[in-house]
Design a protein around this nucleic acid. Structure first.
Length: 258
DNA sequence: ATGGTTGCTTAGCAA
């Protein structure tokens, strides 16, 4: 089973790119983030014509997450459902072939010390608590998404420029490590201990031509699933060309699954 | 370098 995660930065602006990528790469499951459309504007027909079921949790202008799957999905869950009043559409999950798969768009966090940064850290802790409650260590589970955290300096082209930002701040990295401590494995790191691989390049800094990138999009797997992860990669090619998303798709392949 | 670009929505916000 080939699973991907991709922050599209608007599914409306990126639909043709998405369809071309699905046709070329043939993933079985794709977790999407930053749809920026309400559910009634999600391009369900185009995705189904490409051979994928789709479930989405969107909102107008901001955020929005979805899962595309060639296999049927069941037990759809939307949001954190922890009693906190939160209108931001950042989480959806579905069961596919016996695996619970989450598509998550972690808050960016704005500036260190801001309200947004506090919300980011709180949201990460809410998600961790949700997984602790709903996902046992033995369960087959994937947490995929734009996590807006580069795990360590290997994942940052220019650490000195980024270490004081919300993407690399020690508190953000510590919050991400708590997912690892809970038994989730970074599938990309599993196969690539060396640095120099990135999934996001800032439009503003002209980051892609300078390769001033960070690895902030991740596919985390429970230990049982991680043992079946045969390869992991980042499709840097998909960041090239006209009107790209600022993110590249990240991919992980699992054996002994449909 | 407190810069720069992109998308959504329509001048300003978010990333």
């Amino acid at each position: 089973m080939k699973v991907a995660s991709w922050n599209l930065n608007s599914i409306r602006a990126r639909l043709e790119r998405l369809l071309a990528w699905l046709a070329a790469q043939q993933p079985d499951v794709v977790c999407l983030q930053e749809l920026k459309v309400a559910d009634d504007e999600f391009p369900t027909e185009a995705v189904e014509a490409a051979g994928y079921h789709a479930v989405a949790h969107g909102q107008r202008t901001y955020n929005g997450v979805a899962i595309l799957s060639r296999l049927p999905m069941s037990d759809i869950e939307v949001g954190l459902r922890d009693g906190v009043e939160d209108p931001q559409a950042r989480l959806i999950s579905a069961r596919v072939a016996g695996i619970r798969i989450y598509s998550a768009y972690f808050p960016n966090g704005g500036e260190v010390g801001s309200e947004k940064f506090a919300y980011k850290l709180a949201w990460m802790e809410r998600l961790r608590a949700h997984l602790e409650k709903h996902a046992s260590a033995a369960e087959l589970l994937l947490l995929c998404g734009d996590m807006n955290v580069a795990p360590d300096d290997r994942d940052v082209a220019r650490p000195a420029e980024w270490n004081d930002t919300v993407l690399c701040h020690p508190d953000a990295r510590a919050a991400l490590r708590r997912f690892y401590d809970q038994g989730l494995v970074d599938t990309f790191r599993l196969h690539h201990q060396e640095g120099g691989f990135y999934s996001w390049w800032d439009y503003r800094l002209l980051g892609f031509p300078k390769n001033n990138g960070l690895r902030i999009d991740h596919i985390l797997a429970t230990e049982a699933l991680s043992k079946r992860c045969t390869e992991a990669s980042i499709d840097r090619e998909a960041r090239k060309g006209k009107q790209p998303s600022d993110h590249a798709p990240v991919v992980a392949t699992f054996s002994d699954l449909p």
